[in-house]
Design a protein around this nucleic acid. Sequence first.
DNA 1: CGGACAATGCTAACAGTGTCAACATAACTT
DNA 2: AAGTTATGTTGACACTGTTAGCATTGTCCG
Lengths: 196, 196
Amino acid sequence: MPPVLPVTAPYHHGDLRAAALEMGMERLASQGQPDLGLRALARDLGVSATALYRHFPNKDALLDALALEGLNRLGQNQAEAAAKAGGGRDGFAEVGVTYVTWAVRNPALLRLIYNRVGQVDLAADDPTAMGEAFHQLRAGIAAMMPDEMSREERAAAALHAWSLVHGLAMLILDGQVEYDPAMVRKVVLMTDFNAG
Amino acid sequence: MPPVLPVTAPYHHGDLRAAALEMGMERLASQGQPDLGLRALARDLGVSATALYRHFPNKDALLDALALEGLNRLGQNQAEAAAKAGGGRDGFAEVGVTYVTWAVRNPALLRLIYNRVGQVDLAADDPTAMGEAFHQLRAGIAAMMPDEMSREERAAAALHAWSLVHGLAMLILDGQVEYDPAMVRKVVLMTDFNAG
DNA sequence: CGGACAATGCTAACAGTGTCAACATAACTT
DNA sequence: AAGTTATGTTGACACTGTTAGCATTGTCCG
């Protein structure tokens, strides 16, 4: 299978950077913990460990790239779910279930995303691709809130929703509770944005 | 300062196990990430790295012990909060705020707790100290739910509450949102156990 | 076409880690 | 006092991320 749309013609290996990211994603997919070993990854690629340093300044940068890819996939997943499910409580619950389901199916990737984005300086509005993607995810969440809310209420409601599904996902990933879609839906539906 | 209540008389060092745990907790407290280095810890204790292997079978066991201690502290913190704050929505919100506050003050420890307990086989009702302490924490949460609920509703409500505060705590620890007690309270109060 | 140059890859090495085996010392027991 | 057990140390092994120096290959330009 020839490489797909090689932006720049490959030299020795053939776009090692893309191959590394692909292999990295594969490894993360078949793993529970985000313990990517740089050397092990290079071994799987049939390449020397230091070759990767021609494409990433260090291991963290590689992980950042993987986390960014994961974040984009997550964002797309959520956008699709939001579009499919209409508004209202049921639609909101569906989107929540979608988040948790994605997390269960991509545990290492979700962990990597949140671990990595924490390192980035987020206070300064740096136009990092990472910060950008996360901002988009947040905007997507906020967009689902009821219309009649003030901006402040909206922010609180969005944070509530995000915390709820993220916390539930983490508890499942950490083995605290079993994954059960019906239960997830039930838990999400206990939110009442008019309360408080 | 002489050692406090030495259960068994110390040999060379003087209850190295306790000293290691204490130093480990100290390190975790002054750190954001739970990256305890076994050798570094031994260095701080003025002892050789392998000396720790006389008290813990391996590094994971040491981390488990630290996580257990942390879990006990967290449980005690929550129990006190629950006793102080009465029932009702406001009391419940207070307990939630307490959880998040503790997490913010002990980030590495909270991470360690949840990371470690995930490795333990939890499906089998093993009487591990770890599993025991976690069970206690969960029971404490469930006890706060309204009385008129069925057992199933109670379980869902407890999971909702736990997910909410845990998720909020994780988002704060990961640098996604700033810690603001008032905001936490507001977010927690959006829960309505009678909804759904 | 051929040489210059940059892009990419490799080997060797360094400091760091967790862990094991073998040895040494101190405390307790009899 | 002698022996056994508990504790601690040194040295080593395999592993990790990372750097420096060298080798190779593709691209470009005269």
